[in-house]
Amino acid sequence: MSSHTDCLFCKIVAGEIPAKVVYQDEQLLAFHDIAPKAETHLLVIPKRHIENLNDLSHSDAELMSHLMLKLPEIAAQQGLTGFRTITNTGVEGGQEVFHMHFHILGGKRLPGF
């Protein structure tokens, strides 16, 4: 797993920064967001550093399939029957941490767009 020494999420993967982890396997890590925007707010990240969706290639297809299939399983483990999944790509898309991550938001009924 490659690591970017200045990347917050790579430091969490490496165990250098603590996180309230709810799921992990060889490819993924899921943990509670430290600034939750919903009753349940988790972040799901690939352990390998990928900046965002713009950096994906066809060689990432297996990883992304695994990630997408794990999102509802992780949500269900947290007791969520309905949830919202969001990923932000690039500064213009609202990305703040430049390590690809998916938000799982749930709990009370979330407002619509």
Rank of each mutant, 00 (worst) to 15 (best):
2 S>I: 14
2 S>E: 15
4 H>W: 02
4 H>G: 04
5 T>N: 11
7 C>Q: 02
7 C>L: 11
8 L>G: 05
9 F>V: 03
9 F>C: 03
12 I>T: 04
13 V>W: 10
14 A>N: 11
15 G>I: 03
15 G>V: 11
16 E>A: 07
16 E>D: 15
16 E>S: 11
18 P>Y: 01
19 A>M: 01
21 V>K: 15
21 V>P: 07
22 V>L: 09
24 Q>M: 15
25 D>V: 13
25 D>Y: 13
26 E>D: 07
28 L>C: 04
29 L>K: 02
30 A>Y: 03
30 A>T: 09
31 F>W: 09
31 F>T: 07
32 H>T: 03
32 H>E: 08
34 I>D: 05
35 A>L: 13
36 P>K: 05
36 P>L: 05
39 E>R: 13
39 E>T: 12
41 H>W: 14
41 H>F: 12
42 L>N: 11
42 L>C: 05
43 L>D: 00
43 L>K: 11
43 L>R: 14
43 L>T: 00
44 V>S: 14
45 I>Y: 10
45 I>G: 07
46 P>F: 02
46 P>E: 04
47 K>D: 01
47 K>Q: 15
48 R>P: 08
48 R>Q: 15
49 H>V: 07
50 I>T: 05
50 I>F: 13
50 I>G: 10
51 E>K: 15
51 E>R: 15
54 N>Y: 10
56 L>Q: 05
58 H>G: 15
61 A>F: 10
62 E>N: 06
62 E>K: 03
65 S>N: 13
66 H>D: 09
66 H>W: 12
68 M>T: 01
68 M>Q: 06
70 K>V: 00
71 L>V: 14
71 L>Q: 04
71 L>A: 04
72 P>D: 07
73 E>K: 14
75 A>L: 02
76 A>L: 12
76 A>Q: 15
77 Q>K: 13
78 Q>D: 00
78 Q>N: 14
80 L>M: 05
81 T>F: 02
82 G>S: 15
84 R>F: 07
84 R>Y: 05
86 I>S: 09
87 T>M: 13
88 N>K: 04
88 N>A: 09
88 N>I: 00
90 G>I: 08
93 G>L: 11
94 G>S: 00
95 Q>S: 06
97 V>Y: 09
98 F>I: 01
99 H>N: 09
99 H>K: 03
100 M>F: 12
101 H>V: 05
104 I>C: 10
104 I>H: 00
104 I>G: 02
104 I>M: 11
105 L>E: 06
107 G>I: 04
107 G>L: 11
107 G>M: 05
108 K>A: 13
109 R>M: 10
110 L>T: 03
111 P>Q: 05
113 F>S: 08
